[in-house]
Design a protein around this nucleic acid. Structure first.
Lengths: 121, 121
DNA sequence: GTACTGTTGCCTTTTACCTGCAACAATCGT
DNA sequence: ACGATTGTTGCAGGTAAAAGGCAACAGTAC
């Protein structure tokens, strides 16, 4: 469990950083970072959105993916929801079948506008 | 502006409550309620999710509608997003055309209005 | 006037998110 | 084998923003 922490660790290792090296880069203490990776935070099980942002930046991770792993809704998504609430209320309540068919409808349409994924991984 | 506060006021008036009557019913001070309705909170422009919940309850309002008006994502929606992130990431980035067609696909699946469908996962 | 109503400025509490050390075990290069 | 580096964990806080409380005020209506 705790996919988020494991993902962070994976990204960090990929860069060859130690906890004590990375910590000041993202502006936190190394002990806190360790707890983040192991899901042992005093409260909750994910750090602030701001820290996730800096981690994604520093480690070249996909910010939205990380946010979702941390149980948070990325702004790119929430913006769209607040803009078109009815659609998403329907999507929240429809059955899995319907949602799946929606997935297929939309899947190849990533040529659109707005935020494009900023990096590949 | 501040559709949320106006909606609360509308619901409250509909019930014939004064600020001082409603306040203890939802567990806050009357002065705070006034600020909520007028969008004059010290910070932000909407109260906590917990308070919105109690307001919806007491005033027989649609909780999710109120949450969305307050710029917050209802749990019914965020639960679905965290469960099926890829679909919603696609939906966040697709063009309005596509989203509209999605709306039509899903539209008629609202037969369970009040009760949220409990699905296993 | 007095009995309500709503408004506003300033104050306190609570919570989320960390800090920072200290002490420890494990691993590793030399 | 030794010190250096790495990660883990407990604890004892700190801080800034979020959330809300209190009391004095002003309008209206009886």
């Amino acid at each position: 469990m705790n996919a988020f922490g494991e993902k962070i660790r994976e990204l960090r290792k990929a860069k060859g950083f130690s906890l004590r090296t990375l910590a000041p880069m993202v502006g936190v203490g190394y002990s806190y970072l360790s707890k983040v990776e192991n899901g042992k935070l005093d409260f909750g099980d994910s750090p602030s959105e701001a820290l996730i942002h800096r981690l994604a930046d520093t480690l070249d991770g996909d910010e939205d993916e990380l946010l979702l792993m941390a149980g948070r809704i990325p702004e790119s998504i929430s913006r769209r929801i607040l803009d078109q609430p009815e659609v998403f209320r329907a999507l929240a309540n429809c059955d899995d079948e319907t949602l799946k068919s929606v997935a297929n409808t939309v899947q190849k349409d990533l040529t659109g506008r707005g935020e494009r994924p900023r990096r590949s991984h």
